[in-house]
């Protein structure tokens, strides 16, 4: 589930960090840059594991900071394809099941074509059901613990928000708060935040024995 990746990067140490010793100043800067961020085409960086190499610092004209080339190892959440993971169901839609790993990682999706054969979606219960045989029907309910196999990783290059998007978001937030103040609890103002593609997502499958809700196989 977790790996170590060797990465080198040029980091900037601002002058107010000079009072610290080199290693802790570097670790601090690296953690600010990497902790809880997606490293493109690798995975989700949890923290810096250790620092392997520190070059001499460089100065740039017009800036009091030190620029240092460092080589370090980062602890990264990157399940390999075929790995079995456990998560919790957060949402069932007609397309499939959304699974979350309790704050660690949320963007896991099990599309309907990667579920057991014969699985159906019940819109009235908003749950998926797997008719295992004639009599038993097994339900995929929200908040249940689910085991799945990692099938594919999806990386999307995410652009930073444009000023227009930011403005629109702020406006929507203002409107929502105003509606709340006026006491309209069930206000009809839709949440404008369009669901964007997450930079790193995992596609999972539930097709073999042992997969699906943990309680089925106990």
């Amino acid at each position: 589930m977790f790996i170590l990746s060797k990465i080198s990067d040029l980091i900037r140490i601002p002058p107010d960090e000079f009072k610290r010793d080199t290693i802790s100043a570097i670790t601090h800067q690296l953690n600010r840059n990497y902790a809880n961020k997606i490293v493109p085409r690798i995975g989700l960086c949890i923290t810096i594991y250790d620092i392997l190499e520190v070059d001499d610092g460089q100065l740039k004209p017009g800036d009091g900071s030190a620029y240092i080339n460092v080589t370090f190892r980062a602890m990264i959440f990157k399940p390999f394809v075929g790995e079995i993971l456990t998560g919790w169901i957060t949402k069932c839609t007609a397309d499939g099941i959304k699974v979350s790993m309790l704050g660690l990682f949320d963007d896991i999706f099990i599309p309907h074509k990667m579920m057991f054969e014969g699985c159906r979606f019940l819109p009235e219960d908003s749950a998926w059901v797997w008719p295992m045989d004639e009599e038993t029907k097994l339900y995929f309910d929200v908040n249940e613990m689910i085991r799945f196999r990692v099938e594919q990783e999806v990386f999307v290059e995410v652009k930073p928000k444009s000023p227009k998007e930011k403005e629109a978001e702020e406006e929507a937030e203002m409107k929502r708060q105003q509606a709340l103040l006026e006491g309209k609890e069930d206000s009809t103002i839709p949440e404008t935040t369009v669901e964007k593609h997450p930079p790193y997502a995992i596609l999972g499958s539930c097709q073999t024995d042992g997969m699906g809700l943990v309680s089925w196989w106990e």
Binding site: M1, F2, I3, L4, S5, I7, I42
Partner: peptide
């Protein structure tokens, strides 16, 4: 940023913990 080695080592959950 330059990735030197994508998978330098695997870590077990126990080590991470």
């Amino acid at each position: 940023m330059k990735v030197i080695e994508k998978r330098d080592a695997f870590l077990s959950d126990y080590e991470v913990f």
